[in-house]
Design a protein around this nucleic acid. Structure first.
Length: 576
RNA sequence: GGUCUCUUAGUUCAACGGAUAGAAUGGAGGUUUCCUAAACCUUAGAUACAGGUUCGAUUCCUGUAGAGACUACCA
């Protein structure tokens, strides 16, 4: 039970005893006391005035008196207007710290029994990954970690868009203009080489729009299984996959199951027939099939073209149905940009019309675009921030900053390399994940991602500091313990308070699919520690009881930092 | 045109309808005989505008202004 829940339940008892009335859960508003006031937690009494029939101050006073008189854990109170500030006793905090320290699975919530599929990344195989994909990948991966921590069983998946006109464009350009160039012959990463083809195609089409007909011919041949076209397609796709794999590895991203569009693009056609039989779809005289959504305030949606071929949403209907039935999913999260809000609205609506109850268990994690100071990234204008370049740049920055500090002289080259990677990626991941997914975010390539202040390296540095203290302390102690009588300082209580709220943060973050909640939490904890570090010399403490309590506290703090940032996909170094 | 989203210090981000709107960065000024100065401390600086709902509104509702997304027999 969290401290807030504890206080809410005690306050309910107080209301019952004082006013002989039951307060609903929504009336018990408990929050952490603001810094400028005395107390640990605050009960907002305004909602209780209906029951007490008394002034706010008098009600707060009465409840405060009852709580202090009847609960040994509550040591003091003060009432400011309608706010009842309560202080918890040292015994409470001491016990609280001890019980968290002895719980190895602290932060892992009990199983919900839910099985959730999370689809993210889902790249096109005609160009390399850019910063927008990086946000998608980091969000998807991190939300997966988050849901696991919140007790869900998670299946990470991706749907590779490896067929279609856009792929044929790259293929056509390669055939016409690249003289058999390969990743080996050019020394280029496969996805970048294919990306160059795509850019070249755009130029070709501008010179001569008729090349588009050639591309369509190619697509028709691909669909007919033409051996030469298929071979070219396979070869170029493999270049791209190899390139993506490298980028995923650098980012620390993985999937449990990969779908390829060339295997799934025909799915959904049976569902269309089913919809026709049910009378929720209609077939026009030209053969095209539509779903009328005008009653739901939307337009009519095309499902089958007049030539009998399916469209994007047809496939999505089919894959959703297949996944829910194959994996017996309780929920499916799609990490897709907010430009596709309409698409997912339509998708859910149509699935519901087809009678699938699980349609409402589909959640579109709609995230905002990453924008540059001059607006959206546009590949044609060369303003795209390439993922591989960015990762390399972060590494270089980390290296430069580390070398400048000159603290790493005893490390091997290999260790240094791993550390620069850790710091560079930590900065990048934190930078992206600390922003609420729903909001669009801005990236300015001219100002590189910071290593000072509210950043990933700040948290990493905090961890390294703690590890440094613990290394020194371990020359005196094998392990640390919390003696019952030891008194915690105000700052230490504050640290315990923040640490103990971690499980609650997990469920909050999971409920809103927002790793940003965890990122901000980790920062707050790290910041609080750094203040503590400056005002309290830990190793100088002469009283062993207090020393051990502090060491337990910071060891716990370091582990919570690792857990929280682990959800963000970050690693924390022991020295930096 | 229609549907939806957004607007908070110079800048980038916070704030279940709760107290005096928090951080970071940049600006100004400080802290290394002391567990790592990638840190810490002090200081100035913001809710686009106008109404409404209520004990209380950055948050909910309406309108105005500005920004963006979607509105393909593309994916």
């Amino acid at each position: 039970m969290t401290a807030e829940q504890f206080i809410a339940s005690k306050a309910s008892e107080a209301v019952k005893a004082l006013y002989n009335s039951d307060a609903s859960a929504s009336m018990m508003q408990v929050g952490v006391t603001r810094k400028d006031f005395t107390g640990d937690y605050t009960l907002v009494v305004f909602p209780l005035l209906k029951i007490s029939h008394a002034a706010p101050a008098a009600t707060a006073e009465a409840i405060g008196n009852w709580l202090v008189g009847n609960c040994p854990e509550i040591s003091a109170f003060n009432a400011v207007q309608g706010f009842l500030n309560l202080s918890l006793s040292n015994v409470y905090w001491n016990n609280s710290l001890k019980s968290i320290v002895s719980d190895p699975s602290f932060g892992q919530l009990p199983s919900t029994g839910r099985r959730v599929m999370v689809e993210f990344s889902s790249p096109n195989t005609n160009k390399p990954l850019h910063l927008g994909h990086v946000r998608n990948n980091l969000l998807g991966s991190s939300v997966s970690n988050l849901l696991k921590a919140a007790g869900d069983e998670v299946i990470k998946t991706t749907l590779v868009n490896d067929r279609g006109v856009h792929i044929c464009k790259s293929m056509y350009a390669w055939e016409q203009r690249f003289n058999g160039a390969t990743p080996e012959s050019t020394g280029k990463k496969g996805d970048h080489l294919v990306g160059d083809c795509y850019v070249e195609y755009a130029r070709m089409e501008k010179e001569n729009p008729e090349v588009l007909d050639k591309v369509h011919e190619m697509l028709v041949k691909w669909e007919a299984g033409d051996p030469a076209v298929r071979a070219l397609w396979k070869m170029m796709n493999e270049w791209v996959f190899a390139g993506f794999e490298q980028t995923y590895k650098a980012l620390g991203i993985s999937f449990d199951k990969t779908y390829y569009e060339h295997e799934t693009y025909l799915l959904g056609k049976e569902l269309v027939q089913r919809g026709l039989d049910m009378g929720v779809f209609v077939r026009e005289s030209d053969g095209s099939v539509w779903c009328d959504l005008t009653e739901d305030g939307l337009d009519r949606k095309l499902l089958i073209r007049s030539d009998g071929t399916s469209v994007y949403i047809t496939q999505d209907l089919g894959t959703a149905e297949r996944r829910f039935s194959e994996y017996k999913l309780d929920s499916h999260v799609y990490v897709v940009g907010d430009e596709q809000n309409y698409h997912f609205q339509v998708l859910k609506l149509i699935l519901a019309k087809l009678g699938f109850k699980w349609a409402e268990q589909i959640f579109h994690l709609s995230y905002g675009m990453v924008e540059l100071p001059e607006g959206k990234m546009k590949s044609r204008e060369g303003t795209v921030v390439d993922a591989d370049d960015l990762i390399q740049k972060m590494y270089d920055e980390a290296k430069a900053t580390s070398e400048e500090s000159g603290k790493l002289d005893e490390m091997s080259e290999q260790e240094k390399d791993a550390l620069y990677n850790m710091i560079g990626l930590g900065a990048l991941k934190y930078f992206i994940l600390k922003v609420d997914p729903k909001k669009k975010m801005l990236f300015n390539p001219k100002e590189s991602i910071d290593f000072n202040g509210n950043t990933g390296p700040f948290i990493q540095y905090t961890h390294a500091r703690i590890q440094s203290i613990l290394r020194k302390a371990h020359s005196s102690f094998d392990e640390f313990k919390v003696d019952p009588g030891v008194t915690l300082s105000a700052k230490e209580i504050r640290l315990v308070k923040i640490i103990s709220s971690y499980p609650q943060k997990i469920s909050e973050a999971a409920a809103s699919y927002s790793p940003a909640v965890i990122a901000n939490y980790a920062y707050e904890l790290a910041k609080e520690f750094n203040q503590y570090y400056h005002e309290t010399p830990i190793l100088k403490e002469e009283y062993t009881g207090a020393l051990q309590m502090r060491l337990s506290l910071i060891e716990l703090l370091a582990s919570v930092l690792r857990k929280a940032t682990g959800i963000l996909g970050m690693k924390l170094p022991d020295r930096m």
